[in-house]
Amino acid sequence: MNIHSTNKRQVGLIFGKFYPLHCGHIYLIEKAVSQVDELHVFLGCEQARDLSLFENSHMPRQPQVKDRLYWLQETFKNRRNIHIHVLDEENIAYYPNGWQDWSDRVNAILQKHQVTPTVVFTSESQDAKNHQLYFNCEVKLVDADRQFINISATKIRSDPYQNWQFIAKAAKPFFIKRIAIIGDKQFDKLPKQLANIYNTQYVSNGYINYIQHQHLHNNKLVLNESDYIRIALLHAQRLDEAMPLANQIIFTSLDFQTLHDFYRKAFEKSSKILQKLEDNYYFDQVIDASCFKQSDSSLTVFEKAVDMINKQLS
């Protein structure tokens, strides 16, 4: 699709890594789009640099380009005058060098879509002169002193959970810590208690729910292979539904590795579906009976579990 511009139209540009997308970025984009007819947002990516940012962060896992692109697309969905582009910055000299090569890449994308920019919006005052030079248009600074929103992606990467309120709504599920608490009946209440304490979501055990709904009157219950698959898919669905509502962490009493282990013992083989769920639904921590002594009281178990969770968020 070609996006046409004329000299009468105001066309803005914004550049960023959005690593991760946060309220400051959103403010920049929203203020910019209120001043132009169309806005082009460039998501810069470079493998080695992005990996280095992650390795020097306290993020639970590394955001990929597809994750960052989704955060932007989801945040600005149905906004027809906001256009998002992925900008490949591989083999370009690192900032503050490489301006010519970098701007050539940007201009190639602009030419492809027949776009002529009239203004660049940025929060980085040190970039203003080069933006004006290489794109031959006006540059407008937005909240350069961070007075309106005092946050940066660097601060979030260094401590995402202390800066939770600044992470974009679309990006928060990526950072949610998944904690499974499994074991005998003495653990039934613990994940619910922890969910209450941390003001977040508890996802009930799909295994128990499935048995209650599908085999209510079966006193001699033996699960077959399809039962395990249905249990797993039900649990995955409930996790997906709860993630956008969770606050930093989510609790459940079943993880997919444990369920898959039950399946292997029952049928002496693996399941491709269960393996895929196990791979795609990573749990940051699984707390089971082996984490505690048999002599531990309910209070001791409770206090040890809280300490484990606090370490996850530190």
Rank of each mutant, 00 (worst) to 15 (best):
231 I>F: 01
295 S>N: 08
257 Q>W: 11
132 Q>V: 07
294 Q>E: 13
167 I>D: 05
76 F>E: 00
281 Y>R: 10
9 R>M: 15
62 Q>E: 14
156 I>M: 06
225 E>W: 00
50 D>R: 05
82 I>Y: 04
257 Q>T: 14
55 E>C: 14
25 H>P: 04
27 Y>D: 10
251 F>D: 03
255 D>Q: 13
252 T>K: 08
212 Q>K: 12
95 Y>E: 04
288 D>S: 14
37 D>I: 06
178 R>I: 00
121 F>Y: 15
191 P>R: 09
267 F>G: 11
6 T>F: 15
305 A>H: 04
71 W>M: 03
265 K>Q: 15
298 S>R: 06
39 L>N: 06
25 H>M: 12
136 N>V: 09
225 E>H: 04
59 M>H: 03
210 Y>L: 02
175 F>I: 08
313 L>F: 07
24 G>D: 11
81 N>Y: 08
62 Q>A: 12
293 K>A: 14
144 A>R: 13
105 R>N: 12
262 F>D: 15
86 V>W: 09
225 E>A: 14
87 L>W: 05
101 D>F: 09
312 Q>V: 05
191 P>V: 02
60 P>A: 10
291 C>F: 12
299 L>V: 15
147 Q>T: 11
136 N>W: 09
63 P>I: 00
203 V>H: 05
72 L>T: 01
39 L>W: 06
92 I>S: 00
184 D>Q: 14
26 I>M: 13
100 Q>K: 12
124 E>G: 10
249 I>A: 08
202 Y>C: 10
246 A>P: 02
71 W>E: 00
38 E>M: 14
289 A>K: 13
240 D>H: 13
51 L>F: 12
89 E>K: 07
7 N>C: 11
296 D>H: 09
291 C>Y: 14
56 N>K: 15
230 R>M: 02
194 L>W: 04
182 I>A: 10
275 Q>E: 14
169 K>W: 09
117 P>D: 11
116 T>E: 15
4 H>N: 15
186 Q>M: 08
97 N>W: 12
96 P>Q: 11
248 Q>T: 02
177 K>H: 11
135 F>K: 10
175 F>G: 06
306 V>D: 09
222 V>T: 11
149 I>A: 05
131 H>A: 04
278 E>W: 07
240 D>Q: 14
66 K>G: 00
9 R>Q: 15
297 S>D: 08
238 R>A: 07
211 I>R: 10
313 L>S: 08
245 L>G: 01
297 S>A: 10
95 Y>C: 08
305 A>I: 04
108 A>R: 13
285 Q>P: 03
170 A>M: 01
278 E>R: 14
202 Y>M: 02
15 F>N: 06
54 F>L: 07
98 G>A: 05
79 R>I: 01
161 Y>R: 08
237 Q>E: 14
200 T>W: 09
213 H>I: 02
68 R>V: 00
239 L>W: 01
132 Q>A: 15
254 L>Y: 01
25 H>Q: 07
247 N>M: 08
38 E>N: 14
159 D>Y: 07
150 N>R: 07
139 V>I: 10
258 T>R: 12
266 A>L: 02
233 L>N: 15
